[in-house]
Design a protein around this nucleic acid. Structure first.
Lengths: 246, 246
DNA sequence: CATGAATTTATGTATAGACATAAACCTGAG
DNA sequence: CTCAGGTTTATGTCTATACATAAATTCATG
């Protein structure tokens, strides 16, 4: 009756539940089954694929987890409405990013300060009042062209080891990535016209629009670090790729 | 031996496999089990939760799907290494976004053109040479303040129904979202200084840095639409949230 | 005819058992 | 010591069965 039948075959190469899932996914993403459409009952899929309900259920449950379908008891399973579009954005590890483009990466620390967080830090960067913090300003280069100007705050309490580091060779970002896991992160991307000092550092004309990436990370509820990176406007963009569901 | 035991209880309120999954997730995200750590064997979890292997397997399989752990036969299940930081970015559905902030959303179509794609369209927007396209320019408002200036190209071949629409009431974005599923999308976020015409439409000073979101979508390999949205710089940013895995 | 109770049905969860398979481990021949 | 080949083990998949539960439908009753 249909080409997807598994009847009589010894056993499919890929796991059957994967094939069922893929078939359903295909029908949905191709538009054959639009949002709101009721997909076949588990009972019907059992017959079509000649397998047990648990196998069908596993396939459909995976689609539920990925947000492609919704199920209502006694009513059936329905293709989910498209939600707000979601995309996966890769927040760059600068050194890798630059090298991947065949350029030479380098880094220069401008300053390092250890102090207690003041009211301004709380307001501007969301750190905690009076927290013991280290502030690092630095530049990242691609082929010796300044690409990113970075301000970094690190909570010493969250990462005691930073107290002994000068960050003259390794950037705070790469050191933290290798040494401090985070469990939560928030990113904010905006467009800014950098101040005079920043335009000078990046060697760009004043009034050049630049991307600004602010990142806060937490570990087990406690703040770890704040970073503000200003990307040289004419050399950078962020790219995001599709997410079919959710 | 531990507080998570399910022994002797009539039946847990939330599904047991969800609780197992949540427990494992907690241990991983809290840092208790760092990347590379071997989590308990299914056999051990069966004992701990006093359940069948299928139940444990279902929980762990879900973690595999989400990328939090990796499994190796005969060796066990291991917490996955953190990859390059990935974040989930919500590409806004403008109307919803504006309403969610308690503002009134409105929309105005500026122009609509149907023509064959020229060399310039190919270069600037990546559409196909000589393709039959519709070009729409429009503005989106929040409380009557112009928020976004949009340029939209639609391949008529991919969406024949657009030939009959004027887009005077509904924006191309919302109409497409409701009527045309896409299977692939690419987003590009950059910072721009808009041209004179755009600054006039958005009622902002010249030299204001603005976010520019360019989006291309495909359906089964064929291009569907291109959009370039310029966001009023002082009123908008993109926010992205953490992804523990991937 | 309205309304609440009983019934039906599709999904939700769990189980014990079975066999497959990749990879780690062990062992014996050379 | 090395390497081929056998063994063990943890995961990978599937099944048949069971009972729970939410919600749509039907039905009885005032």
């Amino acid at each position: 009756m249909n080409e997807t039948s598994n009847k009589g075959e010894s056993r499919a190469d890929p796991a059957l539940y994967r094939r069922i899932r893929a078939d359903l996914e295909e029908a949905i993403l191709s538009g054959k089954w639009p949002p709101g459409h009721r997909i076949p009952f588990e009972h019907e899929l059992m017959v079509r694929y000649d397998c047990a309900r648990m196998t069908v259920n596993r396939a459909v449950s995976a689609l539920v987890d990925s947000g492609l379908v919704e199920r209502r008891r006694r009513a059936g399973t329905f293709v989910a409405q498209r939600k707000v579009e979601s995309a996966v954005l890769n927040i760059p590890n600068l050194a890798d990013e630059v090298k991947a483009r065949g350029m030479r990466y380098s880094y220069r620390r401008l300053s390092l300060d250890r102090r207690a967080a003041g009211a301004e830090d709380v307001k501007d960067y969301g750190v905690e009042e009076r927290a013991d913090i280290i502030e690092i300003r630095s530049l990242h280069f691609a082929d010796d062209i300044p690409l990113v100007c970075e301000l970094r705050l690190i909570h010493v309490a969250a990462v005691p080891a930073v107290a002994d580091l000068t960050f003259e060779e390794a950037s705070p970002g790469s050191w933290l990535l290798a040494h401090v896991p985070w469990t939560e992160a928030q990113h904010r991307i905006s467009a800014v016209t950098p101040d005079r000092q920043t335009t000078a550092l990046l060697e760009i004309p004043r009034n050049t629009a630049c991307l600004c990436l602010e990142r806060r990370t937490w570990r087990n509820g406690g703040p770890v670090t704040f970073a503000r990176q200003i990307f040289r406007g004419d050399m950078y963009h962020f790219a995001a790729h599709f997410v079919p569901s959710n």
